[in-house]
Design a protein around this nucleic acid. Structure first.
Length: 531
RNA sequence: GCCCCUAUCGUCUAGAGGCCCAGGACACCAGGUUUUCAUCCUGGCGACACGGGUUCGAAUCCCGUUGGGGGUGCCA
């Protein structure tokens, strides 16, 4: 069977990881099934949709390698067809105007009372609901309104579509039937949604409960009682189509066979099933993905500024790593594999293996995975990848003859490309090196140390160019002369030369920076301490 | 309020009645390599939300409680 899935974002801001994870799962499922991956921009919210957001979205998808087939569908261009569809639904009795008298009235989809033949409807058995004693029940062809008493004793109003109450009987206090819903009485009910028939002094409702059910590829068998549903708006009073209609219509037109989307759409599915039926189209298969939650365990909101895809790119994460990491949020191949190439993911991915419960996004694990991907870059690839980040975070390095060697030295220490920001000390002139004041104090306070460090610096002057090995033996010699334990001078020298307690090997670092530069850095550090 | 979904180490997850007094990864801790840091290697800490049931046997099935999430007539 042909497999057609789509990603249908609304371009109302930055793309965040929740959205893109949905795109990734759609893409993976499609490519696994050798199907067609469609992109539809749901830009019907004219107030909030922007071209900028569309551009950003396309850029993110390109970056992650989420290629799509066929042309992009822009939902706004479909609105004429949507309105036509709504008119047709009115003609066929599947929809009605809320205020038939007014010119600008929203159009509602009417849950059909005669739905027993539909594939997604089943009977759940007889039900009795006790009402608030003596309360009234109001009904018309659209729905039923009745009052019940909550456990706390409060009277609560309930409203639901008439379709939920097959063979409804409204009972009085003495158990007598005040109203019975049958073919005839149903037709006698007010057809104008604004009018209602009232049955006074009721005590209970009995009816045959029916429910909407479907099999969700991720969540399994799902069902919802029809008497908990209401007719819903498909066209606004300003004439614009609502999400439900537009979304279903376009899925129909694009012949979508599999809908993979966020958990928040589960409830919509029960309604969309009816819409597909009314439009005369076989509903697609559904798969609802659980949400990705933030550090606090809450769903990402537009306020979580740290979850935009573009930002991850900025921060120096590789597309591969983010893709890989995100594919593992709410899905696993079933074995212990984690680091997987796109090809491996496509091969292993089935939507049925997606999890049902929310997953928390963990930047630490992403960072670790990113480091894994960076580590396996060749030297040339690494150089190429860091170039844009150098310009931004370490401009001193651009064009420097030292760069290649520094990169080699720092490769295994790079977890994100933005880490190049810590490379500045290699390239700065001695007077611009920034020092860690605390470290300075800790490692360069002892007189004996200071003396020997100074002596080392003087020795450097005599060694205009020197190798790491020569530097090491030089340090050892100074240590011996001053009776300092072997290796004790390394850290003070590191501070003096780089300004920091962490970094690559100090011998190699001094070799790279050169004798003259290192010597003047050391002198400057010693002087700073004196101030 | 009502409806729907959900619950394994701090986090991501393996687990579809016996292979599990629960396995892997990240994080964390300890040790080794590197006279710093990172990489790499070894080890450690650490979970089936709670209460009932079904069964010879339950993390796995059922019910309930609690927690979390979603939906609930003009957002998508």
């Amino acid at each position: 069977m042909d497999f057609r899935a789509r990603f249908a974002p609304s371009p109302t801001g930055q793309v965040h990881i929740g959205n893109i994870r949905t795109a990734i799962f759609n893409w993976l499922a499609t490519r696994h099934n050798k199907g067609t991956f469609l992109l539809r921009i749901e830009d019907t919210d004219l107030e909030r949709s922007t071209q900028d957001a569309i551009d950003k979205l396309l850029e993110c998808m390109k970056w992650l390698g989420l290629d799509y087939d066929e042309e992009i569908m822009y939902q706004t261009k479909q609105s004429g067809l949507h309105k036509q569809a709504a008119e047709k639904l009115i003609e066929t009795g599947y929809a009605y105007k809320l205020n038939p008298a007014e010119e600008h009235s929203p159009i509602l989809f009417k849950l059909p009372y005669d739905c027993d033949g539909m594939k997604f409807i089943r009977q759940a058995g007889p039900v009795r609901i006790d009402l608030a004693p003596g309360s009234a029940v109001q009904l018309n062809q659209a729905g039923v309104v009745y009052n019940t008493v909550s456990p706390k004793g409060k009277t609560v109003e309930n409203a639901a579509s008439l379709a939920g109450f097959k063979n409804l009987e409204i009972l009085g206090a003495d158990g007598s039937v005040l109203f019975r819903l049958d073919e005839e009485s149903r037709k006698a009910l007010p057809s104008n949604p604004q009018e209602k028939m009232t049955v006074e002094n009721c005590s209970a409702l009995t009816f045959l409960r029916r429910e909407v059910f479907y099999h969700d590829l991720v969540k399994g068998d799902l069902a919802k009682p029809l008497d908990s549903m209401k007719d819903f708006i498909i066209v606004r009073s300003d004439g614009s189509p609502v999400f439900h209609l537009a979304n279903v219509y376009d899925d129909m037109q694009q012949r979508v066979t599999h809908i993979v989307r966020g958990d928040d759409h589960v409830e919509n599915t029960y309604r969309h099933l009816f819409l597909f039926e009314a439009l005369g189209f076989t509903p697609p298969q559904y798969a609802h993905l659980p949400m990705i939650v933030n550090k606090a365990g809450k769903p990402y909101s537009k306020r979580d500024g740290d979850a935009f895809v573009g930002d991850f790119r900025e921060k120096g994460f590789m597309a591969q790593a983010l893709f890989n990491y995100l594919s593992l949020l709410g899905w696993s191949p079933g074995d212990d594999r984690e680091k997987m190439s796109k090809e491996e993911l496509v091969e292993a991915f089935t939507i049925e293996r997606a999890l049902r419960s929310p997953a928390q996004f963990d930047i630490a694990k992403l960072t670790n995975m990113n480091a894994l991907y960076i580590a396996e870059l060749s030297r040339d690839e690494f150089m190429e990848r860091i170039a844009p980040y150098l310009e931004k975070y370490c401009p001193e390095a651009v064009g420097s003859p030292l760069l290649e060697k520094v990169a080699e030295l720092m490769h295994s220490r790079t977890k994100t490309f933005a880490d190049v920001a810590h490379w500045t000390y290699f390239f700065r002139s001695p007077e611009n090196v920034e020092y860690d004041a605390k470290a300075l104090k800790k490692f360069l306070s002892d007189d004996m140390i200071r003396k020997s460090v100074e002596e080392f610096a003087s020795g450097l002057d005599a060694l205009p160019s020197c190798t790491a090995a020569e530097i090491e033996s030089k340090i050892r010699a100074v240590e011996e002369k001053y009776g300092i334990p072997q290796g004790k001078l390394n850290q003070p020298l590191r501070i003096a030369v780089t300004g920091s307690t962490i970094g690559a090997g100090i011998y190699e670092t001094i070799e790279l920076i050169g004798s003259a530069g290192s010597a003047s850095r050391i002198r400057r550090a010693l002087a700073m301490k004196n101030e």
